[in-house]
């Protein structure tokens, strides 16, 4: 579950995480300055092409899109429908076309931000990403904010999920299977059964506390592994990015 989504096995995993991050940030910010429809079409086409070339699982990408649709688009569509209904019954012009147009472009830009950051996450090994964040956020250490400690914790969770995830998932699947099978017994029994299984699973996982503690000590010594390196692929990526920016610039000027 975890491994396939941490960007270890895509065609862009070998790229430098820092260069990729700078390009990603530019690609996330620039759509907010664009007004021409052609620019958005170019952005979408470019991202779709990157998705294809990178070898990201289509299923993973669709799941991400579904999350965006469910969390952002559907509530908005619902709101628009209610507003239109209110306008219909009250006879007032509740629907402002300009307002919807602005909203549409905001959603479009947000979608591009979401898309390009998702591409970054999906094509960057988590270890490198955390290492890069550790270097970028280094100034915060001066303010006595334990950035390394927090990032290490994220790494520990990822490691534990990779190591113990399947065992946990199998146990929880049994729990949900029993939940399904016992669904005829009534709410009270369901709650009782679920609570008991959850307790036994939480207890079983907490029994590994010493093992996790050992892992924390061992992993803390390793530190983060990001080192800047510029390969031919990075150079090509920067060139393609510059070409893209130039074309967007000319479209916007026209």
């Amino acid at each position: 579950m975890i491994k396939m989504k941490t960007g270890d096995d895509t065609n862009f995993s070998g790229m430098d995480a820092g260069i990729k991050l700078i390009i990603t940030l530019f690609l996330a910010i620039i759509p907010f300055f664009c007004v021409q429809n052609a620019s958005f079409i170019i952005f979408f086409s470019f991202f779709a092409l990157i998705s294809l070339i990178s070898g990201i699982s289509g299923k993973t990408l669709l799941k991400n899109i579904a999350a965006y649709v469910v969390i952002i688009i559907l509530p908005l569509l619902f709101g628009m429908a209610v507003q239109a209904l209110i306008g219909l019954f009250t006879g007032s012009e509740a629907v402002q076309v300009n307002e919807y147009q602005d909203l549409f472009y905001r959603i479009l830009r947000l979608f591009l931000v979401w898309y390009v950051t998702s591409l970054y996450i999906m094509t960057t090994p988590m270890e490198l990403f955390l290492g890069l964040l550790n270097q970028i956020l280094l100034p915060l250490q001066l303010l006595k904010i334990s950035v390394s400690g927090f990032l290490s914790t994220i790494r520990f969770v990822m490691l534990l999920l990779a190591e113990m995830g399947n065992r946990f998932i199998d146990s929880y699947k049994e729990l949900f299977a029993s939940y399904k099978n016992k669904s005829r017994k009534g709410f009270y029994h369901l709650v009782k059964d679920m609570a008991q299984v959850l307790v036994s699973l939480i207890a079983a996982s907490l029994a590994d506390t010493d093992k996790v503690q050992e892992m924390i000590v061992n992993e803390a010594e390793k530190g983060f592994s990001y080192r800047f390196r510029c390969s031919f692929v990075d150079f090509a990526a920067v060139l393609i990015f510059c070409a893209l920016m130039l074309s967007i610039y000319f479209i916007e000027r026209s």
């Binding site: 579950m1 914790t153 520990f156 969770v157 534990l160 999920l161 113990m164 995830g165 946990f168 998932i169 929880y172 699947k173 949900f176 939940y179 699973l201 939480i202 996982s205 907490l206 590994d208 506390t209 010493d210 996790v212 503690q213 924390i216 000590v217």
Partner: peptide, 26 residues
Amino acid sequence: SKNKRLAVNIILVCNAIIISYLESFI
């Protein structure tokens, strides 16, 4: 100890993530 507290928190986070992942099947 600080490490033990961190270990307990990490285990609870893992449980939360896995429950969150699996409940989509309910």
